[in-house]
Design a protein around this nucleic acid. Structure first.
Length: 259
DNA sequence: AGTTTCCATTAGTGCGTATT
DNA sequence: AATACGCACTAATGGAAACT
């Protein structure tokens, strides 16, 4: 069953937008290619060597920590990139943030209209609490980078993890971000920004992944703490190695291909 | 007994869609 | 147009089970 699923991932790498595998079927990361085509005909992606794009990785993770379909987070990140709204200064300005929130529905519709490629399952919408989170990231940006660099230096990514997990407002409303932390680490590993991040820290046990694990008979520890989160991540990594949680995330989408 | 870990459930939010 | 309902998703519970 597990091997079938992995095979289905490989067989369907061209048809499922988020399965980014190279010719050797190695996973390249979610942000390597959103499969969204921007108006200038460039493909939407994040090059994490660039600071603006690194910033947007945190925006993606935070947006994805909100409730709602994942496409909302993908398009929100795309919107900020396409309109170059990743400059920190913008997000210190409450007036700017207010205006963004006021225009959110228009902007959501607009970015979907001017892009091609990915088709959202549901109508794309930008939650109002996305914007405050971007401000939180902006205001703490120097510390976020510091913690990352310190983690790399000491080869202990718990330093970063513990820090990012205590920032209020990166999850839904005033909540913290938790289960999308491995996403950040995975992308940094996949793009070789910090290639020594252990794969065990890089798997996201979100709802889709948990449901698929259950169906496959893979028992995941419960994710009610940072500790549990990374225990679950390690279990997923043990099973799927450098495909991370992607096979499990794709389980429902791949079902027609292997059941 | 006391602590940690596990598990299922609940709360919470904002949205889309159907119904009136 | 207004209301009601359901969905997608995560954080935070609280109690059970599994450990010292």
């Amino acid at each position: 069953m597990k091997d079938q699923l992995i095979q289905a991932v490989i067989d369907n790498k061209d048809s499922i937008s988020y399965i980014n595998l190279n010719e050797n079927n190695q996973y390249l990361g979610w942000t390597y290619d959103f499969n969204i085509i921007l108006p200038n005909n460039n493909k939407m992606c994040l090059d994490l060597r660039q600071e603006g794009d690194l910033f947007l990785l945190f925006v993606l993770a935070s947006s994805w920590s909100k409730t709602g379909p994942w496409e909302n987070a993908a398009f929100f990140t795309t919107y900020l990139k396409a309109s170059r709204k990743f400059e920190l200064d913008l997000w210190y300005d409450d007036g700017f943030v207010k205006k963004e929130i006021a225009n959110k529905d228009v902007k959501a519709a607009e970015i979907v209209k001017i892009c091609s490629g990915l088709i959202s399952r549901k109508k794309v919408s930008f939650r109002s609490d996305l914007y405050a989170s971007v401000s939180v990231i902006a205001r703490n940006w120097n510390m976020i980078k510091e913690k990352l660099e310190l983690s790399a230096l000491k080869n202990d990514y718990l330093i970063f993890i513990r820090y990012i997990a205590t920032l209020d407002g990166l999850g839904a409303r005033q909540n913290r971000m938790r289960i999308k932390i491995p996403l950040i680490l995975r992308e940094l590993r996949c793009q070789q920004i910090y290639p020594d991040i252990p794969g065990e820290l890089c798997c996201v046990p979100d709802e889709r992944v948990k449901a698929a694990s259950k169906a496959l008979g893979i028992k995941l520890p419960s994710v009610n703490s940072i500790d549990g989160l990374f225990k679950a991540s390690a279990v997923i990594y043990k099973h799927f190695k450098d495909l991370y949680d992607i096979p499990l995330f794709a389980y429902e989408d791949l079902k027609p291909a292997f059941v």
